[in-house]
């Protein structure tokens, strides 16, 4: 069982490293991801559109507001689930 697990892990790791040869070098600014116009748009316009200097907060609360609402719902639901599973009955 353990040798099988080790085999699976090693094969998966080798495949990931093989696939990772296409990734850009660490810290390279000339990547598609950084030069993409969406990233540049957020960096240039988030202050004028959202009024907050922290770009991460502007993205989180303004552009991705739906997602953050869902995220808050996720953590609320997790808390309620733990409450249902573990809370002893109050008599």
């Amino acid at each position: 069982m353990k040798t099988l697990a080790l085999l699976v892990v090693v094969i998966t790791g080798a495949m990931l490293i093989y696939a990772g040869q296409d990734l850009p070098p660490f810290g390279d600014p000339n990547t598609d991801m950084y030069q993409h116009r969406m990233t540049q748009y957020f960096i240039e316009n988030s202050k004028t559109e959202s009024g907050v200097p922290n770009i991460v907060t502007a993205l989180l609360a303004n552009y991705r507001g739906y997602d953050t609402l869902g995220e808050t719902t996720v953590i609320f639901t997790a808390g309620m689930a733990v409450m249902l599973l573990l809370r002893r009955r109050e008599r």
Binding site: V56, L59, E71, V74, I75, A78, A81, L85
Partner: peptide
């Protein structure tokens, strides 16, 4: 790049939630 930071902020919260529920199930 701010975009991965935002994605990971979401992922961390989901990770905390799943861990909490998993640990509660393990206690039961």
């Amino acid at each position: 790049n701010p975009v991965p930071h935002v994605l990971i902020l979401t992922a961390i919260v989901v990770s905390v939630s799943t861990t909490a529920v998993a640990l509660a199930l393990i206690i039961r």
